[in-house]
């Protein structure tokens, strides 16, 4: 990573590793994850259970449990070292510099306060604005996320709103203090199809408008295609493939990415058998030596089981964590 990139990038993650102390010993949830994002860029993170996608985001926002977690590496947001922040700095950082939206909006909104109150409170705390101005900002945010009859919605409680409305309210809350980085953890997974596409379009528009660097975690390749500029595919706590969305989706290089895309169900596959990746996602308590994907990989050989491959740059910002020495895995530019 050149120093010019480092200067332009709003979010830089470098060699991030996270370990959890569990009942059965330590679990390495993340192993050397690194990427950088510029202003206004969207990184789509695709992965399944245990891939570490959610842990990455929570590490960036520093909301992992403090006592049982060991974080190493570097996270720099807007020039500040996030891992070195104390509680006071973190309180200013969360919501103001970096903000997160979740899968279940009902769980992240306080049920005993109105939406308007919650947004206004966040604005007051972070920007020191007066109650008047904070209220005005709350209304402005609700209109920005296109909630119908925003004025009366200010006085609604979470339980009075439907799923799509709540998701919009949560987005309004997260964006109310103009964060530089937006972390989205599967925000559309629990939504109905017609609502999901509305939220995706809304996020795309807001992200562009507010020029936020966005990390968008999803398990749905289609959703990632709709919103991401860059894609990172994660497996077993590591990034196994990285590149521009068009490159990764149209021309996957890593065997896992290939398998994932080949087994993604399109209706056009009706009548044929789905080409599945055999086996199951890895058990983080019991990680195999060498490449995390080797046990399920059709091209694995002895070395793959012994040594974990590092991310190899393929030019044009493409990276793949695979030895790629099988004849069928010819690198295509």
């Amino acid at each position: 990573m050149s120093s010019k990139e480092a200067v332009d990038s709003v979010l830089v993650v470098n060699d991030l590793s996270v370990e959890f102390a569990g009942a059965r010993g330590t679990v390495k949830a993340l192993d050397g994850v690194g990427f950088s994002l510029e202003k206004g860029q969207v990184l789509g993170v695709i992965g399944e259970s245990g891939s570490g996608k959610s842990v990455t985001m929570r590490a960036i926002l520093r909301i992992l449990p403090t006592k049982t977690t060991k974080i190493s590496g570097q996270i720099t947001v807007d020039g500040e070292d996030v891992l070195a922040m104390n509680e006071k700095q973190l309180a200013r950082y969360r919501g103001r510099v970096a903000s997160m939206i979740f899968q279940e909006p009902a769980l992240s909104l306080d049920p005993v306060f109105t939406i308007g109150h919650q947004i206004a409170e966040a604005v007051m705390r972070h920007t020191g604005a007066s109650r008047e101005n904070a209220r005005r900002r709350a209304l402005e945010m609700l209109e920005k996320v296109k909630i119908p009859s925003a004025e009366s919605r200010l006085r609604n409680y979470p339980h009075e709103m439907s799923g799509g409305m709540l998701q919009r309210a949560m987005i309004a809350l997260a964006l109310s203090c103009d964060p530089k980085v937006l972390l989205a953890d599967e925000p559309t997974t629990a939504l109905d199809a017609t609502v999901q596409i509305q939220i995706i379009l809304l996020l795309r528009q807001l992200q562009l408008e507010m020029q936020m660097a966005t990390v968008f975690v999803t398990h749905d390749v289609g959703v990632a295609a709709e919103i991401a500029d860059q894609i990172a595919v994660m497996y077993g706590g590591r990034i196994v493939e990285y590149g521009a969305v068009r490159d990764v989706l149209m021309n996957p290089q890593h065997p896992y990415t290939k398998g994932l895309l080949a087994s993604t169900i399109h209706g056009s596959m009706a009548g044929t058998r789905i080409n599945t990746i055999p086996g199951m996602p890895p058990d983080l308590n019991n990680m195999p030596d060498g490449c995390a994907f080797a046990p399920r990989c059709g091209h694995a050989h002895a070395d793959c089981h012994a040594v974990s491959p590092k991310l190899k740059p393929l030019g044009n910002g493409r990276q793949v964590a695979c030895v790629l020495d099988h004849p069928s895995l010819v690198v295509q530019p």
């Binding site: 290939k258 398998g259 080949a262 019991n286 046990p295 059709g298 069928s328």
Partner: peptide
């Protein structure tokens, strides 16, 4: 290019 999976069973849970 189709991805041909090798014939391997589910990894057994070792609990």
């Amino acid at each position: 290019m189709t991805f041909v999976p090798p014939a391997s069973p589910d990894i057994a849970v070792t609990f």
